[in-house]
């Protein structure tokens, strides 16, 4: 009966995940490997292809700040921000559907999201990446890693640590139903700074961890130690987020006119 409960929980989280996140890993992998009847993504690999791509890609977050006149590196950086804000909204909706989450102290819910969202953003970004580039605008475009690397300092280095993490993480070959539980586990971390009431958070996470372990055993019977390997990735994720915050601090120092979205300001303030 306990296993049955864990399967119900896994199914519930997967359903919530599909409702909350429009671009699934399944869809992204189909586009990246050409296994889809949809139009191939527009490949952006230099300044000319970027300009062409901007005409071809229909997307409401492509030019959110009326920024066509902005320098390319800053334009791309702004788009990353817009996408991150959208991701925070999606993750919040997903979190609310984790059984027990909305019954937690409201300030603890805020703390869990504050510390969890970027780990989740980089986990899900890996689904859109391969070693050569990243899907953008819901799979309408593919921006190459080399192009991103060629952006002027300090923007050129901004995505490298995410690609390095993605390549290692994608080697685990998780699918969307695995990721749904993993993401819930990340949110319900009882060791986030400033939590008021840790016990109920750890209780929910214990249940989620049991569901994750069973899910991985059933979905990847030949992949030994996958559960342990996945838990280790949580440490890597914290490192990716710490580096990300350091980059942002550098960018805010060197780019005096750089504005940060108010939601992201809230999240980054006193983070690490």
């Amino acid at each position: 009966p306990e296993c049955a409960d864990q399967r119900v929980l896994a199914k519930h989280l997967y359903d919530s995940y599909l409702k909350s996140f429009p671009t699934t890993k399944a869809k992204a992998r189909a586009i990246l490997t050409g296994r889809t009847t949809d139009k191939s993504p527009v490949v952006i690999y230099d300044m000319n292809s970027l300009i062409r791509g901007e005409d071809q890609i229909k997307c409401n977050y492509l030019t959110p700040y009326g920024e066509q006149n902005e320098e390319v590196a800053i334009r791309i950086f702004h788009r990353c921000q817009s996408r991150s804000v959208e991701s925070v909204r999606e993750i919040t909706e997903f979190a609310k559907n984790i059984p027990g989450f909305v019954n937690l102290d409201l300030n603890d819910q805020v703390t869990l999201l504050k510390y969890g969202v970027h780990e989740i953003i980089f986990t899900m970004l890996a689904s859109l990446m391969n070693k050569d580039g990243v899907l953008i605008a819901d799979g309408q475009g593919f921006m190459t890693r080399e192009f991103l690397k060629s952006l002027r300092k300090p923007f050129g280095e901004f995505m490298e640590s995410k690609f390095e993490f993605a390549v290692r993480f994608n080697a685990l070959e998780l699918d969307d139903s695995d990721l749904a539980i993993f993401i819930a586990v990340i949110i319900l971390c009882g060791d986030r700074p400033g939590l008021v009431n840790v016990k109920p958070i750890e209780d929910i996470q214990d249940t989620l961890l049991q569901a994750l372990e069973l899910q991985l055993k059933m979905n990847h019977p030949d992949s030994s130690q996958l559960f342990a390997k996945l838990l280790q990735k949580m440490t890597d994720l914290r490192q990716v987020v710490t580096e990300h915050v350091q980059y942002l601090q550098l960018i805010r120092k060197t780019e005096v006119d750089m504005d940060l979205h108010p939601l992201l300001q809230e999240i980054y303030k006193d983070l690490y």
């Binding site: 119900v8 929980l9 519930h12 919530s16 925070v88 909204r89 919040t92 909706e93 609310k96 559907n97 059984p99 989450f101 909305v102 409201l106 300030n107 819910q109 805020v110 999201l113 504050k114 108010p262 939601l263 809230e266 999240i267 303030k269």
Partner: peptide, 20 residues
Amino acid sequence: KEKHKILHRLLQDSSSPVDL
């Protein structure tokens, strides 16, 4: 609470949680 007012708002938005 003031420090995280957008996160608070997102959490208290309409969409209702689903109970198992």
